[in-house]
Design a protein around this nucleic acid. Structure first.
Length: 970
RNA sequence: GCCAGGGUGGUGGAACUGGUAGACACGCAGGACUUAAAAUCCUGUGAGCCGUAACGCUCGUACGGGUUCGAUUCCCGUCCCCGGUACCA
């Protein structure tokens, strides 16, 4: 009889659950090890085969470390706020909490089925009020702190207020908004409450700010970037425009340097560190202020329709009498700007400036545009508003832009420089303005060539600048006023000094990193524990947490375009003040969850100091590389902040990080005819083979309603309400779908579920197979072609214990040297490979070991017992069963001792040297392992085969690499 | 576009620090067992070539160069694929 995996696996899963085999407690007598998985978003599609890849790997390490004597924390939880549940709620009216609960139940069932050694008592869910209470609490701490550059850490806002009252802000060296002006203690004490609070917002680590969003008037909502395709909404095909909106932001830039420095102390891949460093993008340069030249009039009526959207917030501001203070006036819309500031990393090229470019959404645009240029500018701004940031940065070859009609003055040579708008300058980055130096920058060169602007050489080393830009720093400066004849270093120093002495600029460090937007115009997220009084945000009291999500009738924005929370009846702080209506973004709850696992049910703190100081930081963190610059950066930021508050001990929360490669999915597509897009139109889809005859938009379709690329039409119509009466243009009576290999993701409907596989071959086989697929880090498309090999392996192991007639054949005999050699070869390799996280090669090693023991007909207990331990991290169910069968206490293999490798069994008397001649192997010669290289050389020189290959030529050299190879050079 | 990763047989992959390329598996082909099938076991399996045969030869790690006694591995350039690109998580 074959091994009955269904029965055995079920038996041990029940055992583990009932006996809480993996329950973990603080135990100072043992070394600790914390293995963490990036927790999943519980999608409606259930767990897919891509999830377990990382989970299996981390579970293997968790089990391996237990065998090595560590006290292992290995928890699992759910990142359960998010867009898909809300989207489902919009479609069905079902409360996202219900859907989420159902999905989590499914996930837990699926996870338990795979035999992970999680301590389920420590499970967390970010959408649980008991959890998000602490997310809100951390948010409040951020609001109540500012970043002090002298202390190089976050300090209390209450302390800042004291300092302002005593000496103003001149002596305060803190991270704050760019436009913060200097004030004295007198100024501060003379300010109204409103003015003081407004000022403090410029310092708080979280604060309301304006940022650009994808506004879709057709759907009356803000869309995520990936809900937008070709400038229209993915759902419904409505136009999308860029709009500025008041949003909460997190001052992550305050931590930019520490986020860069911290990378030096973690064991992450260099590529991952590079990505983070580049994302933060620290660059050293200078800011330079260019005065505006002769602004004759401001041609634009500020209330002009084109600018209405952008200025709506500002208008509100100026309507509010209280807010128009002396300080604010400088920024007010009614005053003409007098200069434009740029940031440059190449201040040395300043004499080569022949134009200036500002972002089309720059706030000065109305003032800079002359009446002659008004129409062209208006048209251009409108066009740019329809384009996403990504589109704008991607299209580098096509030059676009428009002249505003205005000029600035180059402060170094007093030349008139025309001001253009161009979409490659983004308002959100730097000052939203750049100086154009066509001889030294290719994009500027392209722009200058396109608009026929002068290209001035500035260095004598520049070559061929009439065909392309040359960004060299070599040579001496020419055409460059005060720096003529200098080299790069001298010039930069001279210019920076000049800027500072004349008050027109200064040396500056600029980051590409932007402060993180912390609002979503959605329902299914953490409510922000803030309310508004006179248009300013205030926190509720900590004792009033959690602020729970109110009940609403529909999960859509209000008629006036407010977020769904605007629908909540009477939802006001103390019945009086408006709450913040946006919710927190997806990354809020995931930015600190590893601490909650340490003490998941604590109601007094986010986790006890005792637990935090025992578990400290994550020793191994496994998750997808797609989180490189999102989750992993935000989490590091929050961790550093919590450390500043003295609440956690470690500067970096994840000591070792492994990025599992994506298991790619095979996506299926349907093709919607473009003419049928838009509200109220009947959707028309055309089959793959006929799609070239129409203008179509490819749309993802659920792979589970497609089989062999043929669409199940009825299932498709039921899939989404708007497709109920869709028309399908068929070929040969079928609707054929397109196929593409891409990331397996719920939002592309290409999720494949592991349940079927567990049923067909068992969890142990699935675990083994997923590891056997290849290196953990490498991406690979999912297919089950090789799974039989893993299944056979399990059966072969069983057959070492039982013969064909089901007789137990394990004997208590003394192992032979050959058997010990097989076993210890495996022990060595399994240990080495696990230490370097080479999960796939361990599977091969186990297979070779089992094959060899089979050939040796070895069924000796001493050998098999160690083999079972070696296997147990990969195939815990069968290992637990065999362990018990061998006479050990039931359910104890998880805490057994990893077999000790003994090199004695591997000693070889001889080594067979490959003999290569000019790099090509021509013979093999065996020598005792202690033979000296000179003796080997002598033997090789006299070898017949070698002589034959020499054909009478001289041997130039013989290279002997001990226990590797011999190479004869002739 | 920019940032980062990858490309090895029919397929997944191995080769750890520059040292016999293709371990281990899948698939395929042939054989054993069986009335038959499944399961299991055995043999072969990068491409091309020579030969009766043991064996041997040439090519071969995306493509083109380079460094080296020796390169899948290091360097330069090109092509293709995948992830991220700030509201998917």
């Amino acid at each position: 009889m074959d091994y009955n995996y269904r029965e055995v696996e079920q038996k041990w899963r029940t055992f583990w659950e009932e006996n809480k085999t993996f329950k973990t407690e603080i135990n100072p007598s043992k070394p600790k090890y914390y293995v963490l998985d990036m927790f999943p978003y519980p999608s409606g599609a259930g767990l897919h085969v891509g999830h377990p890849l990382g989970y299996i790997a981390s579970d293997i390490i968790a089990r391996y470390k237990r065998l090595k004597g560590f006290n292992v924390l290995h928890p699992m939880g759910f990142d359960s706020f998010g867009l898909p549940a809300e989207q489902y709620a919009i479609q069905t009216g079902q409360h996202p909490a219900i859907t989420t609960e159902e999905n989590i139940t499914t996930y837990i069932r699926q996870l338990k089925q795979i035999g992970f050694s999680y301590d389920w008592d420590k499970e967390v869910r970010t959408s649980d009020a008991k959890y998000y209470k602490w997310t809100q609490w951390i948010f409040m701490q951020l609001f109540n702190h500012y970043y002090d550059k002298d202390a190089n850490k976050a300090l209390k806002i209450s302390d800042l207020i004291v300092r302002f009252a005593e000496s103003g802000n001149k002596s305060v060296n803190a991270v704050c908004d760019e436009d913060t002006v200097n004030f004295t203690a007198e100024d501060w004490n003379g300010m109204s409450e409103y003015e003081q609070q407004s000022m403090l917002l410029k310092y708080r680590l979280t604060y309301p700010d304006e940022s650009v969003v994808n506004w879709c008037p057709g759907l009356g909502t803000v869309l995520a970037n990936d809900e937008v395709k070709d400038g229209v909404s993915e759902r419904g095909g409505f136009p999308v425009e860029q709009k500025k909106m008041k949003q909460w932001a997190m001052r992550i830039t305050a931590y930019a340097d520490r986020l860069i420095d911290g990378l030096n102390e973690v064991d992450w891949s260099d590529s991952m560190k590079d990505q983070q460093r580049n994302w933060i993008g620290r660059s050293t340069g200078a800011s330079v202020r260019f005065s505006l030249y002769d602004v004759r009039d401001s041609m634009f009526d500020v209330s002009d329709s084109m600018f209405e959207v952008r200025n709506s917030e500002n208008k509100q501001t100026s309507n509010n009498e209280q807010r128009t203070t002396k300080i604010e006036q400088q920024k007010s819309n009614n005053e003409k700007p007098t200069s434009i500031e740029v940031f440059t990393t190449r201040v040395d090229t300043i004499y080569g400036v022949s134009f200036m470019v500002i972002a089309p959404e720059h706030e000065y645009v109305p003032f800079l545009t002359t009446s002659e240029q008004k129409e062209a500018v208006e048209e251009y701004v409108q066009w740019v508003a329809s384009r996403s940031e990504l589109d704008r940065m991607s299209e580098v070859k096509k030059v676009s832009g428009v002249f505003t009609g205005s000029y600035v003055i180059n402060p170094f040579n007093n030349e008139k420089v025309p001001i253009y708008l161009a979409d490659y300058v983004l308002a959100g980055y730097g000052t939203g303005a750049v100086m154009g130096v066509p001889s030294g920058d290719q994009r500027d060169w392209n722009f200058a060539t396109h608009f026929n602007l002068p290209i001035v050489p500035i260095l004598d080393a520049q070559k061929d600048i009439d065909t392309q830009a040359d960004n060299t720093k070599e040579g001496k400066y020419i055409n460059s006023g005060i720096i003529n004849g200098m080299n790069y270093k001298e010039a930069t120093a001279t210019l920076t000094k000049f800027l500072e002495e004349n008050g027109i600029g200064k040396g500056k460090i600029q980051y590409r990193l932007r402060n993180a937007v912390f609002s979503r115009q959605r329902y299914w997220g953490e409510p922000v524990p803030a309310y508004f009084k006179d248009g300013l945000p205030y926190l509720m009291d900590e004792s009033e947490l959690p602020l729970t999500l109110p009940v609403i009738d529909k999960y859509l924005p209000t008629e006036t375009g407010e977020p769904p929370l605007g629908r909540a009846e009477g939802w006001k702080y103390k019945g009086e003040y408006e709450y913040e209506l946006s919710t927190m973004p997806g990354w809020a709850g995931s930015s600190w969850y590893w601490y909650r696992y340490m003490d998941a049910h604590n109601e007094a703190e986010f986790a006890s100091q005792e637990s935090i100081n025992y578990w400290k930081a994550v020793d191994l963190y496994i998750g997808g590389s797609e989180h490189a610059t999102g989750h992993l950066l935000y989490s590091r930021f929050w961790n550093k902040f919590l450390k500043d508050l003295g609440l956690v001990p470690e500067e970096e929360f994840a000591k070792k990080l492994i990025n599992q490669g994506m298991i790619q999915g095979r996506s299926n597509f349907v093709y919607r005819v473009k003419e049928s897009e838009g509200q109220g139109k009947k959707p028309v889809f055309v089959s793959f083979g006929l799609k070239d005859k129409y203008e179509v938009t490819p749309l993802h379709v659920d792979v589970n309603i497609v089989s062999n690329e043929v669409l199940d039409i009825q299932a498709f119509k039921n899939w989404r309400s708007e497709y109920v009466d869709a028309e399908l243009i068929l070929e040969d009576g079928k609707y054929i779908c397109g196929v593409e290999v891409e990331k397996m993701s719920k939002r592309w409907y290409n999720v494949v579920n592991p349940d079927t596989l567990v049923d067909k071959v068992g969890a142990d086989t699935l675990r083994l197979y997923e590891m056997f697929l290849g290196p953990l880090e490498q991406a690979k498309p999912w297919n089950t072609n090789g799974i039989d090999g893993s299944f056979r392996f399990i059966k072969k192991v069983w057959r070492l214990f039982y013969d064909d007639q089901d007789n137990f054949k394990v004997k208590d005999e003394v192992p032979t040297p050959a058997e010990l050699k097989v076993l210890h070869t495996a022990i060595k390799k399994v240990e080495e490979d696990l230490e370097r996280y080479s999960f796939n090669t361990v599977v091969s090693t186990l297979m070779i070991c089992v094959n060899d023991l089979g050939s040796l007909k070895c069924s000796k207990k001493a050998i098999l017992q160690d083999l079972v331990i070696l296997m147990s991290p990969y195939t815990p169910h069968i290992a637990e069963e065999l362990w018990t069968i061998l006479g050990n206490e039931a359910g104890t293999i998880s805490y057994a001792n990893f077999p000790k490798f003994n090199p004695v069994y591997l000693v070889e008397a001889n080594f067979e040297y490959p003999i290569s001649i000019n790099g090509k192997v021509r013979a093999n010669l065996s020598f005792p392992t202690d033979t000296l290289p000179a003796e080997i050389e002598a033997a090789v020189r006299e070898n017949e085969i070698v002589m034959k290959w020499l054909e009478g030529k001289e041997i130039k050299k013989v290279i002997v690499v001990p226990k590797r190879i011999v190479n004869v050079v002739m």
